[in-house]
Nucleic acid binder design. Structure first.
Lengths: 356, 356
DNA sequence: GGAACACGTCCTAAGTAGGGC
DNA sequence: CGCCCTACTTAGGACGTGTTC
């Protein structure tokens, strides 16, 4: 008789597989294989500061390799009281804005041997609360809230979840001025938009339409206020503000509505983000108008697509990958301080200078 | 004297926080608070099929809510022998191709109450092996390899890691014909590209330049072979193939090189992906040539940006979010079978019909 | 419904074997 | 010889759950 106590037959409903199934080798198995004690094996592989003689270490490592051993992270997490994961909450991972941020977070995590778990909030407060609560169960080292949210006090639910999360020793990093977070990543949307507004006025624009999101969303409010301040201080006037969300379709719809109401030539459209601006551009084109000399468009973020549309989109460059990387650092570095995140106005063909 | 045995002072190097730190409430705490046994609390909250009297369940739930209890996922993972996570490996999360796939995976995971951990392979075999190995420690339910890889047999390293992963009961889902995976998501790149090639020939194109990636990358090989078959069967000829990678810059560089060698008007450029095609378009524009009547361009994927560039890019639509969703299902459904993933040629302005 | 064990790891205490001084 | 120092071993508790009896 061979070893396995109860091989039994697998229920046929189980996934078919060409591989023989079996339990994962444990540290115990490795120790036995190497002929050392459990404690030594533990020290040799995932070791503390205590030293292990070279010959023993080699034996243990050889045994581990032979058995294909990998430490059970869950078990380590329980024993150590902390698990090597960073949770990242984004509104929509298919949006390049969040894709770039995620990219930066992932790079940092990789450098530190941490794992990134990602969740989609869809900018829904209730969903967000549910997710934070579920993620709390993972006992992550840190939680990065990248989805910009409303200015209004968060519903008690999420605030409570975040507080609870922090109480367990996790660091909460939020984008923007978030009262419930331990640390904040500040993108100076206001100044960036202000510089953009000034620059547009300098180019000769005097009348602008703004495509924003619902009032109360910080990112949108700041960009809008900044743009208005800069544009009006230099002689421009914001004619109207249309509200939508951060999606391309929202930009197209908002622009279409504006066009239906009539948009004089020489008008500038400022969209809250490049993605929205690109949606607006498609609406302008569909209406048979021209982008640039006829209707000018500018956005915010400098997403890669912005330099690929034509005419290329004028925007404010935000170093999003760097932003993500910093958010990660904020999560793990004890004495973290935000490095400056320089924003830069990038003028392209979508906003030609108006000849006087 | 208050309770805590050794409050001690925290080392000042520790992260500052406005929240009092403390251990997470455990099931034990909940049971004590509710005045029931541990087993009952466990059954009431994360319970198996066994019933718990309503009055007890209520008491337990009330206690849990009061204490802000959340089950420790790691502990559950150990006890149950499996953890509620799906690992997703992509080459580059900032690439919209993977962003869309990730979006579909995340949606599926959310529906099933699973967590998605994401890792970046950068299409580096060694990195991939390392990541799979590290992820194995998490004992995830499933592993999705979305990064297309080379056709050549994988280095022993990764193959072994994958086999080991499967042996522990995890399902490996790979894109393309991957011998080491339990399940495969097949995108019919060849047929799609063939249809595109035929269609381009029908539009009147007779001469094409192809921008591909290094030989051996399945996705690229299939698309290239399919395009060539369709295009040549209908009277076209592929003049040259330039190799790069899947990034925008690669498309720009490849196209710039081609332009330096001379590209006659009426030539069609087929790029291995939309992202590459968009890079090529920028190079064409920079060279002072016109996209469309002069040099036509088509791509593959139908990434959102493709309909936003102008002229809009002709391409093959791949339902990427659906692909991601299906990859997720393949991971959890016992009797999964791939549903058809229809590809569709989308002709836009970047490939105008050539008047004869 | 409860008591007790199992899951895989880390950690500590106490003991032991060997080497150099 | 006795001493200390080092690096091992054994034994067992702890972590928070799920799951027999």
């Amino acid at each position: 008789m061979t070893n396995p106590a109860s091989p039994a037959e697998r229920p046929s409903s189980e996934r078919a597989s060409r591989h023989p199934r079996g339990p994962a080798p444990t540290l115990h198995d490795v120790a036995r294989e190497a002929g050392v004690s459990l404690a030594t094996a533990s020290r040799a592989l995932n070791g503390s500061e205590r030293k292990v003689a070279e010959s023993f270490r080699e034996r243990v490592e050889a045994a581990a390799a032979k058995l294909g051993y990998t430490a059970n992270v869950s078990a380590q997490a329980i024993a150590r009281g902390t698990s090597p994961v960073i949770a990242l909450l984004v509104a929509d991972i298919a949006d390049p804005y969040f894709g770039l941020i995620a990219s930066g977070v992932a790079r940092g995590a990789d450098e530190h041997g941490l794992v990134v778990t990602i969740a989609i909030t869809e900018r829904d407060q209730e969903r967000e609360a549910r997710i934070v609560r579920a993620l709390r169960g993972q006992r992550p080292r840190g939680l990065i809230l990248a989805a910009s949210r409303t200015q209004e006090p968060r519903e008690v639910d999420t605030a409570h979840e975040l507080a609870e999360f922090a109480r367990l020793g996790g660091t909460v990093v939020a984008f923007g001025p978030d009262g419930d977070a331990d640390r904040r990543i500040e993108i100076d949307n206001r100044s960036g938009a202000e510089a953009l507004g000034r620059r547009m006025a300098e180019l000769g624009y005097r009348s602008a339409i703004v495509l924003g999101t619902a009032e109360g969303v910080r990112t949108s409010d700041d960009r809008l206020a900044g743009f208005r301040a800069g544009f009006e201080a230099s002689g421009g006037a914001v004619e109207s503000v249309r509200r939508g969300d951060f999606r391309r379709e929202s930009g197209a719809a908002g622009m279409a509505a504006a066009l239906a109401d009539g948009v004089p030539a020489g008008t500038l459209v400022f969209a809250i983000s490049d993605v929205v601006a690109i949606g607006a551009m498609s609406a302008i084109r569909e209406a048979g108008r021209e982008i640039g000399a006829d209707i000018a468009v500018c956005g915010f973020d400098d997403v890669p697509a912005s330099s690929d549309v034509s005419p290329a989109l004028t925007t404010v460059r935000v170093p999003l990958t760097e932003v993500g990387y910093q958010a990660f650092r904020a999560t793990v570095d004890a004495d973290w301080e935000q490095s400056p995140l320089p924003l830069e106005v990038v003028v392209r063909a979508s906003t030609p200078a108006i000849p006087r």
